[in-house]
Design a protein around this nucleic acid. Structure first.
Lengths: 242, 242
DNA sequence: CTTAGTTCTGGTCAAGTTGACACTAACTGG
DNA sequence: CCAGTTAGTGTCAACTTGACCAGAACTAAG
């Protein structure tokens, strides 16, 4: 351990790191509904060796914050999310037991079946990366650093955001049924919604556009597919990955 | 200038700084209504010497991010806001022409007549600190660094926030009339609101409580004073200044 | 003292939105 | 072709919203 006491390490200039909370929608046998999952990486070094943590790493001198988050994510998990938004900067003095670290945390929404998302292969092969239910108390209770608070804050932000904006499409594919959008809302808000009323409100927003296609294969009338148009987020919050 | 070219300075570890956008509500003769004002400090050193900039400074090794913002604000402007919330971390490579700087930006809402707010004296005596209309194009067009974008983003966040939460009371005193709350909304949203309807909606929220007092002195029927109760913000976003 | 001017405050009404729910449409699988 | 399942439409009552009216309660002018 590089510093023997708190006073000493506090004199060091703060280190800058970047981490990411990634949410995806997956089936949850426990509830029968879909719910939110997130990938974690196992720490291979002290402190917190062996415990699960958010993917992250130091800020390189040549990377913007966003690039640093995206690059690190690619390297540690194989994920290349289309959507990455800054969540919060965490800078308390005692976040890490060994050094003063300020972490800029990003959050991402990914789709299980995204073609960009090469993660499936990487994640399956690497025992140090795995997906967990975002609200599993077992998981949240044993994370490294202050990552529990970070995830809980990310969940809070997600809920707030889904309520008054449309980010649901980021968890879905290019085309989607209204029932899929409803599943997103149900997973995030954790309650059931009336399909008919939900349809009515969604169709009244200008952001979602009907296509001529239908999704067949279910044991029922094939639902129409829709497409997302429009952008309600601030430029700062919708930068694209370079 | 410490580094002669871009490639060289980019190899340096990023410097961490903290800045703050402070909004206050003041009379605006131009519109007749109240509008948002913010204090800026004149830069005394290169780069951007002589131009106006947000108050800010480097992150000290012993300060949390919030403390750093609060302390710096006190030292440069004399302001001690009750409310300080993290806005965003700005970290693009070319924000500063001389060094790589990552700035954690906070934003604050202060009241003109806050007893905490010792700023009046300091601000009046110091020619390098002054208040400006937050949306004055003259001012926004001549700021140092990327501070124009930062302020515009802060305004955007403020509008979003005031729409679905109650932060108006932070710009007002302990007790306030409903008309004062309406003035806040009118200033932030930049449109007039119907007093009767506004009253109806405000009184239906549980966050605002009637008192037995009335405000006399106006040339009209004295309005009842109200008090704010309740807290809708996430713990992370309502930390108190130490 | 009266009256004009002002804002506060309570109310009404029509239009729009929301939640609950009934019912028909269109597919699959036996 | 019939049962099962979800898609999608329609309706109704309750609630919310915006526009506006009118009385209440103060100050200031005469």
């Amino acid at each position: 351990m590089p510093f023997s006491n708190v006073a000493e390490r506090r004199e060091q200039p703060p280190t800058l790191a970047v981490s990411t909370v990634i949410f995806s929608l997956r089936d949850d046998e426990r509830t029968g509904r879909k719910s939110l999952w997130l990938p974690l990486v196992r720490r291979t070094r002290e402190p917190f060796r062996g415990q699960w943590a958010l993917p992250g790493g130091p800020l390189g001198p040549r990377d913007s914050l966003l690039d640093a988050a995206a690059n690190n994510l690619r390297d540690t998990t194989g994920l290349i999310p289309r959507y990455l938004e800054q969540l919060y900067a965490f800078g308390d003095l005692d976040r890490s037991p060994t050094r003063r670290v300020v972490s800029i945390v990003y959050w991402a929404l990914v789709r299980e079946d995204d073609p960009h998302d090469t993660a499936t292969s990487v994640l399956l092969d690497d025992p140090n990366v795995a997906w967990f239910r975002a609200e599993d108390p077992e998981v949240l209770g044993n994370l490294a650093f202050d990552h529990r608070e970070i995830i809980e804050y990310a969940l809070w932000r997600l809920r707030n955001k889904v309520e008054y904006g449309s980010i649901a499409h980021r968890l879905l594919g290019e085309r989607f049924t209204l029932a899929q959008v409803r599943e997103v809302y149900e997973a995030v808000l954790d309650k059931e919604l009336d399909p008919a009323n939900f349809r009515r409100t969604l169709r009244s927003t200008p952001d979602i556009e009907e296509t001529d296609e239908f999704l067949s294969g279910g044991k029922h009338r094939p639902p129409r597919l829709y497409r997302y148009t429009g952008s309600t987020t601030h430029p700062l919050e919708s930068e694209n990955i370079s």
